[in-house]
């Protein structure tokens, strides 16, 4: 399968009043065309920053210190703001965010907001725009589409808003969709509906998705391949079945065994000692070593690199 996106040793730092936060310290993963790629990790590990870096939507205090983001043979990090806006954002790579309530503009109708992105690449009459918007809304299986057009975001439920977000993004026909925790604000039944819509769309339009989440159960539900992230680094790149059957990195292992399933018992759940490090002053060597039961001296001094240990399976650990 061909690579659509290749992130190579990406480093992103943030200048803050307290010092430099090393949010991403070497992120490496590749996304195959047509795959559903999960990026998983706990709060503050840099998942969202990775997503935002791909679109170069980072705040002003962010410094891209090094690395490459190769999208279809072009390094996005070399592109100017103007090129990004014209050639990539929306029509090549689109993103949907966690909270659908705050990513829609409250003072514009649904039609206005979706057709705004259509207008970027297509000139048409009012009626034609309206028809395009209706088509897009039908793709995400929203009920009573005509009635929705003139509604405002506050008149819609959370699940509907998130579907509107997808419709908006579909309107530009992107090749890569970055979804940053799209179901975290939704209830399970609505989440199940949403995941179904996403699965259908992926099959129909051969979309590639980077799915950022902290929820391992959702990952197992929809992803083909997973990158596990810890404190700004990728610790394991692994096909989804392997992750659940045979997680290799000690952090991935603990993570997989701390998820509640249908049959888990409280006694069998794994806990990870300590807490996530502050990235202003991250641990030396392997960033997981202070919490790792198997850590030795080398883990404290040398940064482990991703090495191949199986088919499409890469792990960054000195002990494996």
């Amino acid at each position: 399968m061909s690579k659509l996106l290749d992130i190579n040793d990406l480093k992103v730092y943030f200048n803050t009043e307290e010092g430099v936060v090393k949010a991403l310290a070497g992120v490496n993963f590749k996304i195959d065309k047509g795959s559903f790629h999960g990026l998983i990790g706990e709060t503050g590990c840099g998942k969202s920053v990775t997503g935002l870096s791909i679109l170069k939507l980072l705040d002003n205090n962010a410094l891209i210190e090094g690395g490459k983001i190769i999208y279809k043979d072009e390094n996005l990090l070399d592109k100017t703001e103007k090129q990004m806006q014209r050639d990539f954002r929306g029509n090549e790579i689109a993103m949907i965010f966690q909270d659908p309530g705050s990513s829609l503009n409250p003072v514009f109708t649904i039609q206005d907001q979706i057709q705004e992105s259509v207008k970027m690449y297509k000139k048409a009459s009012k009626q034609e725009y309206r028809n395009i918007v209706i088509e897009e809304l039908k793709k995400v299986k929203l009920p009573d589409v005509e009635g929705l057009l003139d509604k405002y975001p506050h008149q819609l439920s959370g699940g509907m808003k998130q579907r509107v977000m997808i419709a908006m993004m579909l309107a530009c026909n992107p090749n890569l969709l970055i979804a940053d925790e799209p179901t975290t604000a939704l209830d399970v039944s609505i989440q199940a509906q949403f995941l179904q819509v996403l699965k259908n769309l992926k099959e129909k339009f051969d979309m590639t998705v980077l799915y950022i989440t902290h929820d391992l159960a959702v990952v197992s539900e929809i992803c083909d391949y997973v990158s596990v992230m810890y404190a700004g680094r990728i610790v394991e790149n692994v096909p989804v079945r392997e992750l659940f059957k045979n997680p290799i990195h000690p952090y991935s292992y603990k993570l997989v065994h701390s998820v509640l399933g249908v049959k888990t018992l409280l006694e069998n759940l794994e806990e990870i000692p300590g807490s996530v490090p502050r990235l202003i002053d991250p641990p030396s060597g392997c960033r997981f070593h202070p919490r790792c039961e198997e850590a030795t001296d080398i883990c404290k001094t040398k940064i482990p690199q991703l090495k191949k240990i199986g088919k499409n399976h890469y792990v960054a650990c000195h002990r494996r």
Binding site: Q191, L195, A217, R241, V256
Partner: peptide
């Protein structure tokens, strides 16, 4: 209950 995703890639909703 059927809406809850299981942390097992072989069991899908």
């Amino acid at each position: 209950f059927a809406s809850v995703p299981e942390p097992d890639p072989d069991k899908k909703i």
